[in-house]
Amino acid sequence: MAASVGRPLQVDLATQNKTRPSCARVKVETGEIMGKWVTIKYDYVPKYCKTSKLQGHNEKDCYVIHPELFPQEEKKDEKEEKELA
């Protein structure tokens, strides 16, 4: 895939050791700028929140933006009452 952009020169250690299967980093020499567009199709793109800068959720499900979505624990007194009943 990197060859479609330019001449592949080097990969990072995680790509070389296959310890990060979700993505690959390749240093590419492009040389002359060509007027050619390369379409890249991803099988899976993880959710990413630009606000909290964390993977695993997007802005719609972010606890920072929407604190009401954060799972609330029952108050200790209410929990004890339920156990006694």
Rank of each mutant, 00 (worst) to 15 (best):
E29P: 04
P71I: 03
M1P: 04
T39N: 11
C23W: 15
L13E: 15
D43H: 04
C23E: 14
Y44E: 07
E32T: 08
I40V: 14
E83H: 06
E83G: 01
N58F: 00
V38T: 13
D61E: 10
E81I: 11
S22W: 15
T51G: 01
V28I: 14
Q72K: 15
S22N: 12
V38M: 02
V38R: 05
D43E: 13
K60R: 13
C62K: 06
K41W: 07
V11R: 09
K41D: 09
K53Q: 14
L13M: 12
L9K: 12
A3N: 08
V26Y: 00
M34F: 05
P67T: 06
D43A: 09
Q16S: 13
P71S: 02
K82P: 00
C23N: 11
K47Q: 14
T19V: 08
T39S: 07
P67G: 07
S4W: 00
G35L: 14
Q10A: 06
T39F: 04
I33R: 15
M34K: 12
A2R: 01
K27I: 10
A3P: 01
V45H: 06
G6Y: 07
N17C: 08
Q16C: 07
C23K: 13
V5I: 15
L9P: 05
G56T: 04
K60F: 01
T51S: 10
